[in-house]
Design a protein around this nucleic acid. Structure first.
Lengths: 105, 105
DNA sequence: GTTACATGCAACCATTTGGTTGCATAATGC
DNA sequence: GCATTATGCAACCAAATGGTTGCATGTAAC
C-alpha cells in the first residue's frame, strides 16, 4: 500500500467530513453527499475522486446513480504501520515518567 | 485541540520522515535533522516549523543549537477522536462478515 | 577580537490545490 | 419521444505549498 495518497486525502477537512458522513450512512449517492456542503457539485466530486484514488471510498454504479461506500482498511493500515509506532513510544514515555515520579532518586 | 494542522502536517512525506527520525533519536539539532534530507536547510526548517505549529515537535534552545523533541500526544488524539471511530466500524464489519459466513441463510 | 558555526528571516518562484463555470452524456419518468 | 435528473469532463483561476537564494544574527572557539 502507498500510504502517501491516504495521508494526503485525510489532510482536507471537507474530505474528512465526507468520510464521517459515509461512516454515519454508507452507500450514499453523489447528490446526497455533496448537497449539505457549501460548494459546487463538481468541487465535491473532485474530493470524492481523491478519496477513491486513496482507496478510502469505493463507488458502484446503480443506473444513473453512483453509490459511495466507505472502506476503512487504508485508515487501519495507517494505524497499524505508522501511528502504532508512535503510540508505543508514547506509552513507553508515560511509563518512564511514572517510574521517575515513584522513585525520584 | 485543532486536528486540522496535525492532519496537514502529516500529509507530507518529508515531515513524516522527520517524525520517524525523531522517534528513532529524540532531541536532535536542526543541523542533524536536515543533513540527510536532499533539500536546503531552510526548506527543512519550514517543515519543522509546520510540525512545531501542529504540536508534533517541541524545540528547546541550548546555546546556539535548537534541540527538537517528538510530542506523540497529537497523534494519539487523532487516533482517539477520529481513527478510533473508523476502527470500530471496521471491526463491526468484520464481525458481520464472519457471522454471515458462519450462517449463510 | 576575529573567525567559524548554527540558525533565523525575507523575497522570490514553480507547482499543486481547491474552487469555479459551461457544456456533454446517459438513465429515468411521463 | 422529450423533459428531467445524475453525473462526467475540461478550461480556467486564485491561493497555498514546497522549494530556492541571499543575507542577518547570535553563540562558540581559538
Amino acid at each position: 500500500m502507498d500510504a502517501n495518497p491516504v495521508f494526503k486525502a485525510l489532510a482536507d477537512a471537507t474530505r474528512r467530513k465526507l468520510l464521517d458522513r459515509l461512516r454515519a450512512s454508507n452507500g450514499q449517492t453523489l447528490g446526497e453527499l455533496c448537497e449539505p456542503l457549501d460548494m459546487s457539485r463538481q468541487a465535491a466530486t473532485k474530493h470524492l475522486v481523491i478519496l477513491e484514488n486513496a482507496g478510502l471510498v469505493v463507488a458502484v454504479w446503480r443506473g444513473r446513480e453512483k453509490l459511495h461506500y466507505l472502506n476503512p482498511v487504508p485508515i487501519h493500515e495507517i494505524y497499524e504501520r505508522w501511528i502504532g509506532k508512535f503510540e508505543r513510544q508514547r506509552l513507553r514515555a508515560l511509563h518512564d515518567l511514572k517510574k521517575q515520579l515513584e522513585d525520584p532518586s
